Amino acid sequence: MVATARSSSSVRAAVRLTLMAGWLGFCVIPHLLMRPFGPSPWPRRLLRGIGWIAGARVETTGPKPTARTLIVSNHVSWLDIPMLAGATDCAFVAKDGLKGHPIMRWLCEQNGTVFVDRDRKASVGDQLSDMERALRSPKPLTLFPEGTVSDGHGLLPFRSSLLKLAEDPPVPLTVQPVAIDYRGAAPEFGWPQGETGQANFVRLLGRKGTVSVTLHFLAPLAPGQDRKALTRQSHAAVAAALAPSGVAPARV
């Protein structure tokens, strides 16, 4: 099903935001009670619920990633995060700008987020070490190698720096491409140039109806390759999966 353009309502956005806040309040207490005794299922439940309240209706194809899997995915919208986490219980590699928002930082930390500064090449070694520690947990780890969300019209080039971890992994590691497919509706959910982050968030919350999204879990890549080969193969696999929905691939 291809979604058509829908107007955004501030009232609808406020209702959804209120529901999200209520769902967060419901999830926090059992999470804090369970956390001292081992991994808590509540971050995954929280994020899955956030995606559902926002209108995402998720289907999946292919083998779902397991522990010690590095997911390499395209990135269209903030909605990608609750959808992927809800489907796989994955943690994420995220820009360290989120660390400046106390509530967002705490929520990210509860789900095992690895914060990176992509503009500081000198810190890549520390970032790879943080990713290695995250991959030793029971969760898969998701990397968005485009480095940013797109406007939904095309697939951006993938950056290879953080895939260096997979060249000679310290633990057995699987690299699995994943394509987030909005089935032709990606331009409605992307982040167009000139739109602020807050405006994008409110616009998507105010969107009428739901959207059907398919998470294509693609074939894992052969291990032992260099990071540039893994980057090219990941990009090609994601581009091929998105082509039927009209997403144009970038040259790499």
Rank of each mutant, 00 (worst) to 15 (best):
V2M: 15
A3F: 13
A3D: 10
T4V: 15
A5W: 03
A5N: 01
S10A: 14
V15Q: 06
W23N: 03
L24Y: 12
G25S: 00
F37H: 14
R44M: 05
L46G: 09
G49E: 09
G51A: 00
G51Y: 02
I53H: 09
A56F: 08
E59W: 01
T60M: 02
A67Q: 15
N74P: 15
D80G: 04
I81D: 10
L84Y: 04
C90E: 04
A91C: 03
V93C: 12
L98G: 14
M104S: 13
M104A: 15
G112W: 07
G112P: 15
D119F: 11
R120G: 00
K121V: 11
A122E: 12
A122Q: 09
S123C: 01
Q127D: 15
L135D: 10
L135Y: 08
P138Y: 03
T142V: 12
F144D: 02
F144I: 07
P145R: 00
E146G: 06
S150Y: 01
E167H: 03
V171D: 12
L173N: 03
L173K: 05
Q176V: 00
V178L: 14
I180A: 00
A185F: 07
W191A: 01
P192M: 08
Q193V: 10
Q193N: 10
E195N: 01
E195F: 03
T196Q: 08
R203C: 07
R207E: 12
K208V: 13
T210H: 13
V213F: 01
T214H: 03
F217H: 11
F217T: 03
L218C: 13
P220Y: 00
A222Y: 08
T231L: 13
R232Y: 01
S234I: 06
H235C: 05
A236Y: 05
A237K: 09
A239M: 12
L242V: 05
S245N: 06
S245D: 12
G246W: 06
G246E: 13
V252P: 04
V252F: 15
